[in-house]
Structures are given as structure tokens and as C-alpha cells.
């Protein structure tokens, strides 16, 4: 039932979204003009391609994101069972301290390497 509700929410949002876009497409006036349809470039003709090389920093941060996000994903199940099972198995807290400890070593390494600097 709950998943049905999410599906219904999605369907309703989708209908509204597509409906409003189509409404504007049909009701809006259409008067094409070569200048209007050219790339916006502060009034001068655009030169070069927009999909040029960009800073490698973006790529680096994307990789860091993957690493840290997976780490957070690993933390979630642990956080979920922690309160219920800490009394039976106190080793839970040691495990997570080890995990976060290893992570912090890597984190300090990329910090010292200057990979987190943006200039």
C-alpha cells in the first residue's frame, strides 16, 4: 500500500508536470527568429564549443564523493541496529570506530596531499 502511494504521487506529479509543459507549449505564442534561437552569449556571437575541457577538480571531487558516499551507506545499517543490539554485542562500537578510524586516515591523506584545495 505504501509503495502504491508513492507510485500514485509520482503519477500525479508526472501528469501535472507534463500537462503544464504541454499547456505552455500549445498556448504560448510561437514566433521563431534566428537571433532568438541562437546561443546566449552576452550579445556577441558565440565562439568555440561549450563542451570544452574543464577543471580536473570536478572529476576529483566526483571520485571523493563516491568514496565518502559509500562510506556513509555503510554507516546506515550500523546506525540502524546500534540501539537495539549494543547491549548484546558491545563489539559493535569497536567495529565502527575502526571503520571510521581507517576512513579518517585516508581523509587526512587526501587533505595533506592538497586534493581538497580548490584554486
Amino acid at each position: 500500500m505504501n509503495h502504491m502511494a508513492v507510485l500514485m504521487m509520482f503519477g500525479f506529479a508526472f501528469l501535472i508536470g507534463v500537462g503544464m509543459l504541454l499547456m505552455s507549449a500549445f498556448l504560448g505564442r510561437v514566433k521563431p527568429d534566428p537571433k532568438k534561437l541562437s546561443i546566449y552569449e552576452c550579445g556577441v556571437p558565440s565562439s568555440g564549443t561549450p563542451h570544452d575541457r574543464f577543471s580536473v577538480k570536478f572529476y576529483l571531487f566526483a571520485i571523493f564523493f563516491l568514496i565518502f558516499d559509500i562510506e556513509v551507506v555503510f554507516l546506515y545499517p550500523w546506525a540502524f541496529i546500534f540501539k537495539h543490539q549494543i547491549a548484546q554485542s558491545p563489539v559493535l562500537i569497536v567495529e565502527m570506530f575502526l571503520f571510521i578510524g581507517i576512513l579518517i586516515v585516508g581523509y587526512l591523506y587526501i587533505w595533506k596531499k592538497g586534493a581538497l584545495r580548490w584554486d
Binding site: M20, M23, L27, R29, P32, L37, Y40
Partner: peptide, 8 residues
């Protein structure tokens, strides 16, 4: 809604 909606 009533504005022109161009695709460049």
C-alpha cells in the same frame, strides 16, 4: 504559461 517557449 502564455510566454513563448523556444528551444534554441
Amino acid at each position: 504559461i502564455f510566454k513563448e517557449d523556444p528551444i534554441p
